[in-house]
């Protein structure tokens, strides 16, 4: 299991760095959501299911959606 955790950590770093580098803003927002989802797995592994639920529901789902709506409304989604 520790290898899975390490893999998740590594994946988080890769996705987060890619999110800063990628040109397409929609992709960047999705990647930030993926980081939230992965960190919620880590919270669950560390024995904090409450925090994991909050992170998955608000960080991964609602924040991503609100960012996407804001991008669509401002029309600067490139």
């Amino acid at each position: 299991m520790i290898w899975l955790d390490a893999l998740v950590c590594l994946l988080m770093i890769v996705v987060a760095v890619t999110a800063t580098a990628v040109k397409n803003l929609v992709s960047a927002v999705i990647m930030v959501g993926v980081v939230s989802l992965l960190v919620s797995y880590l919270f669950l592994r560390m024995g904090a299911p409450d925090v994991a639920m909050t992170e998955a529901a608000i960080g991964a789902a609602l924040t991503t959606v609100i960012f996407l709506i804001a991008l669509r409304r401002t029309g600067e989604d490139r």
Binding site: P49, D50, A52, M53, T54, A57, I58, A61, L62, V65
Partner: peptide, 17 residues
């Protein structure tokens, strides 16, 4: 069980979404 007002509220809001 794990969870509470904020988490449940967020899940309800995602249903509305």
């Amino acid at each position: 069980t794990p969870g509470g007002g904020f988490q449940g509220g967020a899940v309800v809001a995602s249903g509305v979404l």
